[in-house]
Design a protein around this nucleic acid. Structure first.
Lengths: 264, 264
DNA sequence: AATTTAGTTCCAAATATTGGGACCAAAAAT
DNA sequence: ATTTTTGGTCCCAATATTTGGAACTAAATT
């Protein structure tokens, strides 16, 4: 017994390296990776070789920089398209954005963070990975807080304890106490706000998407700015959003893949 | 010596399993995977466990179905955003689509196939086989043939031999000979067409994106339908596309990540 | 109650991974 | 021009992980 890693053997280590490359958000050199990694040179070298062979990383011999490989884009396309909610939700956030004239997001929780799955700008379409795939903090975004609010108690405690509580703006809820109070308010109200807690002038209203058994599937939010409207203005969007959420929940429940055979 | 796999040890196997799940393009059961896989039950089981642990797969205990995990969406976002061309090309295909009033694609070659990296719709969507992350055949698409045409000879032979040559339409070039002749024509002309070779009524014109050293970075295409225009009509788009390609090539060359420190 | 099917666990044998250190080439310093 | 440093690659015996046949369990079917 000695290893410094997570416990999933070589595969875990390789994926950890992949994450490490991703965390730079730009092409990097082997030596930069080495510095950031807990592995000895030879080990990291082999890991990176394997990943490159597998096209999960790509290497430019001229510049000697590694970056994430496009095989990931292909896999993510399938992941997105066969996720239970993304394809179902798309037409709804489309309609919401059109009706309300604002930016609409679909998000899920991933590892105590908010992961944006889809986005619709008021005017035009933003195609896939430019925005989908982004992550944000859960404790100071509308969707983040709203999804947390509807988690079962044990999961909630766990996820709250994992928040980093950086104070982005004067209004950021920067400790577990105030966050928990806010989450209670969201549960009572049935929806959540972001009142310039992440970025000044940016406000939003969010609804959870729940499965029939009450599990949190994701969240949708409508975003605006303080010089366009205020929280009351956003609250007036809620009935329309509820409609969408209801429809989505129903469709997700009944939705099956074309050729998926069921025995019951 | 015995293994039936590609040679990258456990990591290779795990990624092969990931690909296998992806190839179904829908949630699947363990037993379906087992049938499709070359691994014994216990081995596959552990592989899938690890992948699920790592959130590369997600498992719904209720339905007992596996699907690709959302961690992939996050990774793909970074892959897309830190690829050398996608972010640079986006404003250009935007403008192209606006100016020409047609659908514009950006694609790269991946494993002898065309991988669509980005797409811009003009006005309303033409129902068509493509989105970011989707893959398509190289030998019967405009971008595919055009990118192949500008590959160095050895890579070209390799990639041609990997094509599956299924005859989608009467016009599909369904053997290596006709494809190679077509590639020569594309080289001479400087751009390529898709003349209903993949789908009836769908036609397109494509240009390669080359690095300063002549390496194929990707391709852009403008797509239309036979009841809107014809190949001559598409050819008239070429000057405008050339402009875009020239600008892109220049920008890609000069483009560096904000904080990327260079020693020369 | 008996059989099949699907999923999970065990453990000794087989195999892959590990990492210290050697090695090499190119760049920087002397 | 020579030496040193830096960044990257390779080797191999010790070691840890993976393997897969088979046994087991739970649930569905006969």
């Amino acid at each position: 017994m000695k290893s410094s890693n997570n416990g999933d053997g070589t595969v875990g280590k390789a994926l950890e390296v992949l994450d490490m490359v991703a965390s730079f958000e730009r092409p990097i050199r082997f030596s930069e990776l080495l510095e950031a990694s807990p592995y000895p040179k030879a080990t990291l070298y082999r890991l990176v070789q394997t990943l490159t062979n597998q096209r999960m990383l790509s290497y430019d011999p001229e510049s000697q920089y590694y970056r994430l490989g496009i095989r990931l884009v292909k896999l993510a396309h399938v992941a997105w398209a066969s996720s239970s909610i993304a394809p179902v939700v798309r037409p709804h956030i489309d309609a919401l954005s059109r009706d309300l004239g604002e930016v609409v997001h679909l998000a899920q929780l991933d590892n105590a963070q908010v992961l944006y799955i889809d986005k619709r700008n008021a005017g035009e379409t933003i195609p896939m990975y430019s925005q989908a795939g982004k992550v944000g903090p859960a404790y100071c975004t509308g969707v983040g807080k709203t999804m947390m609010a509807f988690l079962p108690k044990d999961e909630l405690d766990e996820i709250v304890s994992q928040q980093s509580f950086h104070r982005f703006t004067p209004k950021t809820l920067a400790d577990a106490e105030s966050l928990k109070a806010e989450l209670q308010a969201i549960r009572d109200r049935g929806y959540g706000f972001d009142d310039e807690e992440h970025e000044p002038e940016i406000i939003c209203v969010a609804l959870p998407l729940l499965s029939s058994s009450g599990r949190v599937l994701g969240g949708i939010s409508v975003t605006s700015t303080t010089n366009k409207t205020d929280l009351n203005g956003l609250a007036s969007f809620v009935p329309r959003m509820r409609e969408a959420a209801r429809d989505i929940q129903e469709e997700v429940q009944n939705w099956r893949f074309p050729d998926q055979t069921f025995t019951k």
